[in-house]
């Protein structure tokens, strides 16, 4: 038992390192391909060995191309506005619901909870947002449908309020003459920073990564977020491939961004996540485990 213990640990690390490489390799291919010269890419394809290092793709994207800078702007705007609004709405829902004396509490709770069980699906939602709210091709299409408030987050925050903030604290604030809104902003919020940070990161991530709202509701290219732009560029590759095989690709390929640029855009799309993730790792892990246990 003691003898094979060391061997067992080596094996464990071996498997975990293998899995870690399995998770990271695709990102390495993306990154290396994006800094490989175009000629090398055409000759040897995407590869882990950068045969000719060349940053032209990034230079092109950041200086000559308006679409990428614009898309970054759209994504940042949508992420910030969406996340802030989401957290405010979630707090406004979760705080009253955390109070046992609230009249009609169960009715409201069920009203929220039922949306986790049953949904109208894409077709009615699409028709409502486009026919009655005329949201198509506005910036709100990227912020409002589906993502502004979710039952799951309300429940997570309510659970945090009920289990982590002692009633005595709220009672004391009441005796000191604090109104409900003062109690919420001066007492509850400062005590709730961990859950705010966790939910804020998860919501921000889902706004940053969202491309479905863009796919459904946006066709104007000045409103493309970075993810929608990525989606469109990949479909253009496909378009290029299908036309190239029928022998008319040559003059089209001059317009479509080149092989390296495709990978460079994708790198720019994940870069912010990759950069901040290691620092906020524990919040993400916490969000997942709390959600799984309490949700």
């Amino acid at each position: 038992m003691v003898d094979n213990s060391k061997g067992f640990h080596v094996l464990t690390h071996f498997i975990m390192i293998f899995l870690a490489i399995f998770c990271l390799l695709p990102f390495a291919l993306l990154l290396i391909s994006s800094i490989t010269g175009e000629d090398a890419l055409i000759h040897n394809g995407y590869s882990f060995i950068p045969r000719a290092i060349d940053f032209t793709a990034y230079k092109y994207l950041l200086t000559d191309s308006h679409s990428i800078v614009g898309a970054y702007g759209v994504t940042v705007f949508v992420t910030v506005i969406g996340t802030v609004t989401n957290i405010i709405l979630t707090t406004l829902m979760a705080y009253p619901l955390s109070k046992k004396e609230l009249p009609g509490r169960n009715v409201v709770s069920f009203f929220i909870f039922f949306t986790m069980l049953f949904s109208g699906g894409l077709v009615p939602s699409y028709m409502m947002w486009t026919q009655y709210f005329h949201i198509k091709n506005t910036i709100w299409a990227l912020i409002v449908p589906g993502m502004l408030l979710t039952a799951f987050n309300i429940i997570m925050m309510r659970t945090y309020f009920t289990s982590n903030i002692p009633d005595a604290v709220v009672e004391a604030a009441k005796i000191d003459g604090g109104s409900e809104s003062q109690i919420l902003t001066k007492v509850i919020l400062p005590m709730s920073m961990p859950i705010m940070a966790t939910l804020g990161l998860l919501v921000g991530l889902s706004y940053w990564n969202d491309w479905l709202n863009g796919l459904y509701y946006v066709t104007k290219d000045n409103l493309f977020s970075i993810q929608v732009l990525l989606n469109k560029m990949l479909l253009d590759v496909q378009f290029l491939m299908s036309t190239a095989s029928s022998g008319m690709g040559s003059d089209l390929s001059a317009k479509v961004p080149s092989t390296a640029i495709k990978m460079a855009v994708a790198v720019l799309g994940v870069l912010p996540i990759m950069v901040i993730y290691p620092f906020f790792q524990r919040f993400f892990v916490k969000g997942i485990t709390v959600g799984a246990v309490k949700g």
Partner: peptide
């Protein structure tokens, strides 16, 4: 956990690579 955090659009680029 990293693959879980990136959008499926980026995943499609990784697969395309």
């Amino acid at each position: 956990l990293l693959p879980h955090l990136i959008s499926i659009v980026v995943v499609s680029y990784l697969v395309f690579g």
